[in-house]
Design a protein around this nucleic acid. Structure first.
Length: 701
DNA sequence: CTATTGACTA
């Protein structure tokens, strides 16, 4: 009964009563297949169903199934296929093709096995799709077996089959095997060369792709647009702007004749420019495009985002909406990442409601972007809500959630997400270990962190990378186990990198250990003489001991190496607009009010017992000037701005690009009590939730 | 009667 019901809904009603003979139908179907015209196929289907023509005429039925398969309409194709008793190889091939090319590689393989079972021999038209399906499913064993069958069946020399084998090995990441197959091929066509080039690029061997291109030219082949796509991708990978521009020029010169120019290619050139960090070139090309499709917009928006220009990315997104282009999931992911960068919480939340309104499925990738945005913008509650509602919590989603808990100092929850994930059988990678270890260190969970560090190699055979060591050193160092941290570094299997020494150096600052600080700083300067933050940290340590001569020496070194401290700035979002403040910034239109507010706060805090920690000012100047310098810090400007412009009781969120200064930390704590505000501050390491004179970090920062 | 390669995402 249920079968009858599905049949009734599957087969459309005839729209006219006129009839064709089978031959006419066959010819018509052929042309419909070539033009992939699904609507006309449906009409024809209706005609031939009436009177049972289809049931009687296997030839027609086979053609119709093939037509549906090519159009990607597999339910109808399958329905007809099931009714045909005498299945020839053309029918099998068409079905396998249909599934393999329409996101159902496992169904394609299932049919292939069924075909073998039926005793139908696969041929040169079967294998390309079977190989494609194996490649897409990453079934290495099966893929190799099919390859062997190709050899046994003597179909190795068929160039279509050969190219498909190449492509499959590249999907497996087995560049060597692909190379061997390619070298042994007797016949090579342009697709063989293109497959080789794109295969190298896909496997991170852009240089190899350029070499293959050279060989291809020497062999007398002229590239087509697929060749250019591979080359552009390679240029982006190795940031070869010069060659990239040459290709752009070539496309412009040859484009008008229509041979190489199309939208695909233009979007790829935009992407190439962005990967070469030449977003301005990408922008110029973009503005000149006659037709901008959603991918054109996405490429440029993601380009701005990846180059760290979140404001431009968001501005472009705004323009996209204004001109009526329809953003898709990919747009949303880039825009969320941009919001994430500049802590634009309200804007990010608007994007989420947009996603819901448009009815986009919040798939795992969009969900992960949302969690990251919310967590990084300071709303852990919203991040958790998205995470809890996700039906599929894969590794990246868990990693982002663990990181989120970590930066908010909620180490216990981070650990429990991690173990929950392991319990579900998800295999952990390096990334999630970094996330969970750093979560432990922000919460002072020393034993738990150590346990996880050793578990990593012992139970999951993930070899620790330098980042894991730096997390461990950080974990031990913050908690005051400086000697143990130093011992970890000395016993490392790998060469300690600058992050490891930086972690120890910061711990030395926290626990005022000058001796170890000097050792770490020395190692750090050897590895990276130009990293300014190490010098700053060391002078902080000397300043805390009032060793002004040493402070001066470090400064002289910085001056000699012509290093400059990166500008420190803070963001605060107001009415979906993000305001940025630099140190001592007077450019804001409310600047006078801001400084008046700070002066007022300073007086009130002093009455409440505030003593400025001027040791954090690295200049040996008078106390009074030092004190004034502290009140120029960007986080205070942002805070004063927010206090002026928001009503009582509103939560304030501030983001700083560097580590929050120790004196500012004290000041913000006191202000949270004085003004009765919840203040959420994010710095380069983590979040600080200030409330009622206390901070969530509990000293672990 | 059929085919292989192909840009923007965490």
């Amino acid at each position: 009964m249920s079968l009858l019901k599905t049949t009734a809904t599957l087969i459309p009603k005839p729209s006219s009563t006129s009839t064709f003979d089978s031959l006419q139908c066959g010819t018509l179907l052929q042309s419909l297949t070539n033009s992939k015209s699904l609507t006309q196929a449906l009409q024809l289907h209706a005609h031939v169903t009436t009177g049972g023509t289809l049931r009687r005429n296997t030839y027609l039925a086979t053609k119709l199934a093939a037509c549906y398969a090519v159009c990607g309409h597999m339910p109808y194709a399958q329905h007809i296929f099931d009714q045909i008793v005498l299945k020839n190889s053309f029918l099998w091939n068409s079905m396998i093709r249909g599934y393999a090319c329409n996101n159902s590689p496992s169904r394609a393989l299932f049919l292939y096995l069924k075909m073998l079972h039926f005793g139908q021999k696969p041929d040169n038209f079967t294998y390309p799709f079977v190989l494609k399906a194996c490649g897409d499913l990453l079934l290495r064993e099966m893929g190799r077996k099919v390859h062997a069958l190709v050899v046994v069946g003597g179909l190795e020399e068929d160039v279509y089959v050969g190219n498909s084998i190449l492509s499959m090995y590249f999907k497996f990441g087995d560049v060597e095997a692909a190379r061997v197959v390619f070298d042994r091929m007797l016949v090579r066509d342009l697709t063989s060369w293109n497959t080789m080039m794109s295969g190298f690029v896909k496997n991170g061997e852009a240089r190899g792709a350029f070499e293959v291109f050279g060989d291809m030219r020497r062999d007398g082949f002229v590239g087509d647009r697929t060749t250019l796509l591979a080359l552009l991708s390679a240029c982006g990978d190795v940031m070869d702007l010069k060659v990239g521009k040459e290709i752009h020029g070539y496309v412009v010169r040859n484009g008008e004749s229509g041979r190489v120019c199309n939208g695909f290619l233009m979007n790829s050139i935009i992407d190439m420019y962005c990967n070469c960090e030449s977003v301005s070139c990408a922008r110029k090309l973009f503005e000149g495009l006659r037709v901008k499709d959603v991918v054109s917009w996405n490429s440029l928006i993601s380009g701005y985002e990846k180059c760290g220009d979140a404001f431009q990315a968001l501005e472009l997104f705004g323009r996209m909406v204004v001109v009526g282009a329809v953003p898709d999931e990919v747009t949303v992911i880039s825009v969320l990442a941009a919001c994430n960068q500049i802590s634009a919480l309200r804007l990010g939340a608007t994007v989420q409601s947009y996603v819901v309104k448009r009815g986009y499925v919040v798939n795992v990738v969009v969900g992960t972007a949302l969690i990251g945005m919310y967590a990084n913008c300071g709303s852990l509650v919203c991040a958790c809500r998205v995470f809890d509602e996700m039906p599929e919590k894969n590794l990246p989603a868990c990693t982002v959630m663990v990181t989120g808990f970590g930066i908010h100092g909620r180490g216990r929850e981070a650990i429990s997400i991690f173990y929950e994930m392991l319990g579900k059988g998800v295999t952990p990678d390096e990334g999630i270990f970094t996330a969970v270890l750093s979560a432990c260190s922000h919460s002072g969970l020393v034993d738990e962190g150590k346990e996880i560090f050793y578990k990593m190699t012992r139970d999951y055979s993930v070899e620790p990378r330098p980042t894991h060591y730096s997390c461990l050193v950080d974990l031990l160092g913050r908690a005051g186990y400086l000697d143990e941290a130093y011992a970890v570094i000395e016993n490392m299997k790998l060469k300690p990198n600058e992050d490891v020494w930086t972690a120890l150096l910061s711990a030395c600052r926290l626990h005022r250990n000058v001796k170890l600080a000097v050792i770490s700083a020395q190692k750090l300067f050897e590895l990276n003489p130009d990293g300014v933050s190490g010098y700053v940290c060391l002078s902080n340590i000397y300043a805390a001991e009032r060793r002004w001569e040493d402070v001066e020496n470090v400064r002289a070194l910085v001056a000699k190496r012509r290093l400059r401290k990166p500008p420190s700035y803070s963001f605060v979002e107001l009415n979906k607009m993000v305001h940025q403040f630099f140190v001592g910034d007077t450019s804001h239109e409310q600047s006078d009010d801001i400084y008046a507010k700070l002066k007022d706060l300073n007086e009130q805090l002093k009455k409440a017992g505030y003593k400025p920690d001027t040791s954090l000012v690295l200049y040996d100047v008078e106390e009074e000037i030092k004190e004034k310098m502290l009140w120029d810090h960007s986080e205070r400007l942002a805070l004063a701005f927010a206090l002026i412009n928001t009503g009582p009781g509103t939560t304030i969120r501030i983001t700083k690009n560097l580590r929050v200064c120790g004196d500012c930390h004290t000041v913000i704590k006191m202000i949270s009590k004085l003004t009765n505000r919840e203040i959420i501050m994010r710095d380069i390491c983590r979040f600080h939730h200030f409330r009622d004179g206390l901070c969530s970090c509990g000293g672990y920062w």
